[in-house]
């Protein structure tokens, strides 16, 4: 459930766009959301307090100075920027076993009650599980729920975005049955299917990737999102999509691959 920070009245998210990550392979969605929050300097407005996520705490990951470095952060927090009509939910931990379904329900009922106009899910899928048609061209894909098709469908065509291909349910047996499969995508498929059947405007943006240094993947996914939302503009040409250098990397991304090595090793 959404709990606002401090004693302030709950913020109004009517007609806002909700951006959130799927906890998926390479954590690309989560990394991209970190970049959005830090680059746009979005203030925290509340928590998404739930029993579905593994608890974790740490100090402010977006600290810029000594003063704001000691604010406690938890596993799911909500950031908002009314000037861009954008609300972001950052998820920092995986799901508790068998709780993903109840998380989807809680999330979608919050989306409905907060009257957000649309939801954008940033996700990823195992690169090694692509089929022949998915190997061609760009590794970026999108998926639109029927409800958002009307408002955003044309734009997707103009941007020349590729829709996530369906794959055969039973390869070699029956090629007619096509299903949507996003291996490594966590709750992506479930959340998308639920949104489709509940008439929620949802777009899924995803990238095929492998585990490793996923910062370039996150930047690629974010630039893909920026083509649509125009969160930041390129400096040279206001119409051109932003270049990766314009996204600011938070300091908490340091030591992503562990502590320093013992000097005696060398």
């Amino acid at each position: 459930m959404f709990v606002p920070c401090g004693s302030s009245a709950p913020p109004d998210f009517e007609d806002f766009t909700l951006l959130l990550p799927a906890v998926s392979v390479g954590n690309i969605g989560q990394l991209a959301v970190d970049l959005v929050i830090f680059t746009l300097d979005m203030p925290k407005v509340g928590y998404f307090y739930t029993d579905c996520l593994v608890p974790m705490v740490g100090n402010n990951p977006y600290a810029t100075a000594e003063e704001n470095s000691t604010e406690l952060s938890i596993n799911a927090e909500v950031y908002s920027l009314p000037s861009k009509k954008l609300v972001v939910l950052q998820i920092r931990s995986p799901f508790v076993k068998n709780k993903y379904r109840s998380f989807c329900q809680t999330l979608l009922s919050w989306v409905k009650s907060s009257r957000c106009s649309k939801v954008i899910l940033l996700s990823s899928s195992h690169a090694y599980q692509r089929d022949d048609q998915q190997l061609h061209g760009t590794p970026l894909r999108c998926l639109l729920s029927p409800a958002i098709q009307k408002s955003a469908g044309d734009l997707m065509q103009r941007l020349n975005w590729k829709e996530m291909e369906k794959v055969t349910a039973y390869p070699g047996v029956n090629d007619a049955d096509m299903v949507l499969r996003i291996p490594g995508g966590g709750i992506t498929t479930l959340l998308f299917n639920e949104s489709c059947s509940n008439g929620i405007q949802m777009a899924v943006l995803l990238k095929f990737c492998s585990e490793g240094d996923n910062i370039p993947d996150a930047l690629a996914l974010l630039n893909y999102l920026n083509e649509w939302l125009q969160l930041i503009k390129s400096e040279q040409n206001s119409d051109a999509p932003a270049t990766p250098s314009q996204w600011k990397i938070p300091h908490s991304w340091r030591l992503l691959f562990g502590s320093g090595l013992p000097p005696a090793l060398f």
Binding site: M56, G58, P61, S69, L72, I74, N75, R254
Partner: peptide, 24 residues
Amino acid sequence: PLLEQPNIVQGLPSAVLSYCQVWQ
């Protein structure tokens, strides 16, 4: 001293601290 970024705490201690942060 306070715990520096990017360190995090997990498990029951973090669950209790999260509860306290959310409910002030």
